[in-house]
Amino acid sequence: MASLLVLGAGKLALGDMLFILISFVLLTALVKKFAWGPVTKMMDARSEKISGDLDYADQERARADKLAKEREDALKNSRAEAIDIVNKAKENGEDQKKTIMADAHSEAESVRQKAKSDAERAKQEAMKDAQNDIASLSLEVASKVIAKELNANDQKSLIDSYIKELTVNNETK
């Protein structure tokens, strides 16, 4: 075996080196075509897909987070809005109640006032009428008293005439 290494021994198998070189290059070419090429291509594709999927997952998660936040905000807002609406409705109701009450009050007041003034006027008119009647009656009585002497005939005739007058008056009425 050692003789193989001794230069000039005349037995140096240089052909082996050539043979190994050629077979190794051939082996490399074949491995590349049938195994290395497809497998590394698939490995690259896989690593690309994985990083792509990871990126996609990150994006999706960020989007989901944003959506959840938006929804939460909307929910919070809607709750505040609902409270606002209820409060406003309450206020409105209160206001309306107050105005209705005030209106009713004032109307009742005016009705009462009117009734009072009507009654007053009616009373006044009645008084005036009564006064007029009394005055005319007393005037008539006075004129009757003055027109006749106080004797029995006269008195009788007076009374008769008066009664007659009354009857006439009554008949004409």
Partner: peptide, 14 residues
């Protein structure tokens, strides 16, 4: 010069 044993075994390994 080719050593048959080397070449044959190398070929088989390949």
């Amino acid at each position: 010069r080719f050593n048959v044993a080397n070449d044959l075994s190398a070929l088989i390994s390949a």
